[in-house]
């Protein structure tokens, strides 16, 4: 039986002051080492679900466990298990990539030699060695995306949450980022990924969870889903399912 990386049970969430739930009755089991794509229209609840899994939002109904460690209960232990790559550039633009990686590496609890080693590795992988001492503010969008990703994986986490990691970048940078994400998965990391680029999902995801109006309307292997609904690509499948949602998959 494969190990469960993320286990969500009966999760519902409502923002303060709202009358309806943003997420309702979410149940998910994500196996370790798998790649899962969360897809849905704007406002469907993808980012909310990701923020709940990473502990940014505190869930009141239902439970989320990462490798059997309950999110929100053991902050230090749980947060060491995953890396989060937010959609926004969540680092200090006045600092260089090296300085950002050194700071966030320390906050992940890495030792000084380990930070140095990982910083050198990541800058090399993303082709940032030449500009390692320049402030990130002077970088292009693609380079900033790479720094954003590098910070989230400096501590070699077992789970990586990627919130639109390639939005607004050129083809070269997108390919570099996607290649590295695939490599991380091959090395055993569990990936949870959101994007509006459904072709990207077909490229890297084994399973997808389609979210519509706060509910998971499908959670299956891409090939199975396409065959089941007689569609030849994810875009058509998604349009079809969001018009005629199935009860539960």
């Amino acid at each position: 039986m494969p190990e469960i990386a993320i286990h969500i049970e009966n999760l519902s969430y409502r923002y303060q002051g709202q009358l309806t739930n943003t997420l309702s009755d979410i149940n998910l089991k994500i196996e370790a080492g798998s790649t899962i794509g969360l897809f849905g229209p704007n406002g469907a609840g993808k980012t909310t679900l990701m923020h709940l899994m990473t502990g940014i939002l505190k869930n009141t109904n239902g439970t989320i466990s990462l490798f059997n460690s309950k999110v929100g209960a053991k902050h230090k232990e749980t947060n060491n298990l995953f890396g989060f790559v937010p959609q926004d550039f969540s680092f200090y633009q006045e600092l260089s990539p090296t300085e950002n990686l050194q700071f966030f590496g320390a906050f992940y609890g890495l030792s000084k030699p380990m930070i140095t080693q990982r910083t050198d590795e990541l800058l090399e992988v993303f082709g940032l060695t030449e500009v390692r001492k320049k402030p990130v503010a002077k970088f292009s969008g693609g380079m900033k995306r790479k720094v954003n990703l590098a910070i989230g994986i400096i501590h070699q986490p077992k789970i990586i949450f990627l919130d639109e990691p390639t939005v607004g970048v050129d083809v070269q940078s997108r390919c570099a980022i996607m290649d590295y994400i695939k490599k991380l998965n091959e090395e055993g990391a569990t990936l949870v990924y959101t994007s509006h680029q459904l072709n990207e999902a077909e490229e890297i995801c084994e399973k997808i969870a389609l979210i519509n109006e706060g509910k998971i309307i499908a959670f299956e292997n891409i090939s199975t889903l396409l065959a089941k609904h007689q569609e030849n690509n994810l875009e058509n499948l998604f349009l079809n399912l969001s018009k005629n949602p199935i009860s539960h998959v």
Binding site: T54, G55, I56, H75, K76, E77, T78, N79, N80, F82, F84, P86, D88, F89, S90, F91, Y92, Q93, F104, F107, Y108, G109, I151, G152
Partner: peptide, 14 residues
């Protein structure tokens, strides 16, 4: 507001 705090909240540090 820059999102740094969002990331900081996900780190194993208070």
């Amino acid at each position: 507001i820059s999102g740094s705090s969002l990331r900081l909240k996900t780190l194993p540090t208070n």
